[in-house]
Design a protein around this nucleic acid. Structure first.
Lengths: 138, 138
DNA sequence: ATACTTAATAAGAATAATTCTAAGGAAAAA
DNA sequence: TTTTTCCTTAGAATTATTCTTATTAAGTAT
């Protein structure tokens, strides 16, 4: 965790545990998942600390808050611009690092100043294809 | 509301009021906003009815549930495939009807069967540009 | 039009995610 | 070391959403 030395905010043990759990994590975990995992090794962890730390990291641009899941926020430590592929059955989220050219014509921008974009691809993941589920997630 | 005659599910006054409010609505309202507006003309409206009706409409493909707002679900009666432009300050949402070619290379799909996509553009709307706000929505 | 069957409504309780509060505690500054 | 600042904790509070149950109304058959 040498890499965090110069991160520029107070490195408490709780924050280190959260940073360590997030580091390289590709599962786009929710606050609850982070809390569950981190409190295993750090039993005094509080939910408020998880939310506070996530919010501090988000404000500093160290993580991205995803609004992909209708039920809860998910967090992504990968702050490189990228897109996501979401399984409509199990809600698994995978990264897509391809570049796409999606320029909106001036006359379609409605006066907005556009500063970024994010593409959500929807599909069915290998697991769910194999399980041959009969019922869609509706 | 002649158009709803053959919609194929029980047309109660409450449902008609919700359908009427949603018809052509481009504001991507939340359940709470729908409840507020519809209960003005229909004071006995219940929150459960709003949610039940929205869910019924969603399951039937008459509306789309948007996961764009981190705080709540929003609903879009426009079921044509389209994209959205979101103001990062006031969270206003505008439709983008342009077509974009965003094909993911097979080797980047991780075995997913891709069946759709949705692009979120982020920007600052005219109102918020004019208000010259000093603080970003963080 | 009337009765029947089924599904929808209303009100409020319950749940889940998130935020807030207050008191104590630890880190950095003086 | 003392002070100051900010973090952490535990739990309460809030907000969005879902669930429960008795009641009511819509659609259908009579």
């Amino acid at each position: 965790m040498e890499k965090y030395k110069n991160i520029g905010f107070k490195l408490t043990p709780q924050r280190l545990a959260i940073l360590d759990y997030l580091d390289g994590n590709k599962n786009h975990p929710s606050a609850e998942e982070i809390y569950r995992k981190v409190s295993k090794r750090f039993p005094t962890m509080s939910f408020a600390t998880v939310y506070n730390t996530l919010d501090a990291l988000r404000k500093r641009g160290n993580i991205i808050e995803l609004t992909i899941d209708p039920d809860k926020k998910r967090f992504d430590p990968n702050t490189e611009p990228h897109h996501h592929l979401i399984c409509i059955r199990c809600r698994k989220i995978m990264d897509i690092h391809n570049k796409f050219s999606v320029t909106v014509k001036k006359e379609s921008q409605g006066g907005f100043k556009i500063i970024g974009n994010h593409i959500e691809f929807y599909g069915i993941c290998p697991d769910c294809q194999n399980h041959e589920q009969k019922e869609e997630v509706i």
